[in-house]
Structure formats: C-alpha cells, structure tokens
C-alpha cells in the first residue's frame, strides 16, 4: 500500500509539472509579482543599452507595465506564469509576447498622451492595454476571430475605454482611425505593408518584431521623417557585443 501511495504522489507531481491547473493567488500578490517583473525588465534594459541606444526606458512605459494586469489577459491555466518574463501561449497557435519585448517595443514608438496608435495583431490585448495607459487612443486589429472576441471582452471588462478593436486583415491598416503617431505590428511579417507606411504620420514610428512566436530575434524600427522620408533601424534586443575583434 505504501508503495502505491508513493507512486500516486509521483503521478500527481508529474501531472502538476506537466502543466495542470493552478490558482493565481490574491491581487496583492499579483501586484508584487508585477512590480518584480518591471524591476527585472528595467535591469535587462540597462544591460542592452548599447543596442537600444538608451540605458533606461521611459518611466511612463514602466509605470504602465506595472499597472496592466497581465494575469487577466492570459488563459486561466497560464495565470500563474503571468508575471514571469517570458512569452506565454494564448491558444490558436499564438502567444503573448515576453514583457521585456513589449516594454521595448512600446518605448521605441515614444508614446505621448496625445498620440493615436495602431496595433496590428491584438492577440491577448496585453500590448494594447499597455499602450492604452500611455496614449489617447489605440486602434487594434486581430486576424483570428476567437482571439479578437476574447480580447475585446477582456479589454472592456478591464475598463479600457480608449481601445477600439476590429476583427480583420491588418494589411490595410485602419484609415478611419488614423493617421497614426505610432504603429506596433505584433505579428511577424514578410514585408511592411505599404498602407501602414501611408497611415503613419510624418515623425511617426512603426515597430515590428522578427522571429518565431516564442523567440523574438530582432526588432525593426521604421521612422518616417517630417519630410516623409523613411529610415529603418534593426535592433538586437540583447546585450551581445562586440561581434568581432579580440574577445
């Protein structure tokens, strides 16, 4: 009997390890974990300053990251991981980005309270929620209907009144909502859709992650000058220098 009891305990432990359901804990606990996550992001940004061109993020961005309840925007079974600095599966073959990457992408478009921002790829709604705390209006488009429906409901439940959602093809942007001071394309793309460039205001910034769903390899920042001229900058979001030389 004893042997069987030990074995059944192992089975339970293994099931838990394989991703069984778990409770998320009280709100105060969540707030503390959220703050720890923000502190971790700030530390990593300092380490990647050479590539990012800055050694700290806008304090408003970090503040927003510290306010958005990420655990409310991930599937129930992922809640206990919500404030770990890593991407999480949200179903339908999609992920919610690593908070560190979300913070950098948000910072790169230099959001201001008067800005209007377009997001292509709503996903869980987390990026939109962070932007929603920083700018006047966020318009977000999701291509997968069930994800769009869920994000719309979650964002409404959490009281984000300045976020407009739409289900559909992000290629053509959202002209009625623009022009935009910033555009965040959260889904990797084989090209930068020309209509998005067109809907970007002079002086606006567009950012796209490149890579797979769990691994962001680089960020592409497209800057539209006041004269309408375009420039791109490829950013490696990691401290990995120098590439050559005596090391």
């Amino acid at each position: 009997m004893e042997a069987w009891a030990i074995r059944s305990r192992w089975v339970v432990l293994c099931l838990l390890a394989m991703g069984g359901p778990a409770s998320a804990g009280p709100d105060s606990d969540m707030a503390a974990r959220r703050q720890a996550m923000v502190d971790e992001i700030a530390g990593e940004v300092r380490m990647t300053s050479q590539y990012l061109g800055r050694d700290r993020l806008d304090s408003r961005v970090l503040e927003a990251m510290g306010q958005v309840p990420r655990h409310e925007l991930v599937p129930e079974r992922q809640r206990r991981y919500a404030y770990e600095n890593r991407p999480l599966p949200i179903g339908h073959g999609q992920t919610i980005s690593q908070p560190y990457i979300v913070a950098i992408m948000t910072d790169l478009i230099e959001p201001e309270p008067t800005h209007v921002v377009l997001e292509v790829g709503t996903g869980s709604g987390y990026q939109a929620a962070v932007l929603g705390r920083l700018v006047d209006r966020v318009c977000t488009i999701e291509i997968i209907p069930p994800l769009a429906d869920r994000a719309r409901a979650d964002l409404a439940r959490l009281g984000y009144g300045n976020i407009r959602t739409r289900t559909g093809d992000g290629y053509y942007g959202w002209p009625e909502c623009g022009p935009f001071d910033g555009i965040v394309v959260t889904a990797g793309a084989s090209q930068v859709p020309p209509p998005l460039i067109e809907q970007l205001k002079p002086g606006g910034k567009l950012v796209i992650p490149v890579g797979s769903r769990f691994l962001t390899q680089q960020l592409l920042l497209v800057e539209k000058g006041e004269d309408g001229e375009l420039r791109t900058r490829q950013i490696l979001p990691v401290r990995f220098v120098p590439l050559t030389g005596g090391h």
């Binding site: 380490m47 990647t48 600095n85 560190y100 990995f240």
Partner: peptide, 10 residues
Amino acid sequence: RILHSGGMAL
C-alpha cells in the same frame, strides 16, 4: 548567460 534577456534567439 543572456538566454532569458533576449538572447535565446542567438
């Protein structure tokens, strides 16, 4: 060393 701070893709 930098695996969890953006280095995984490397």
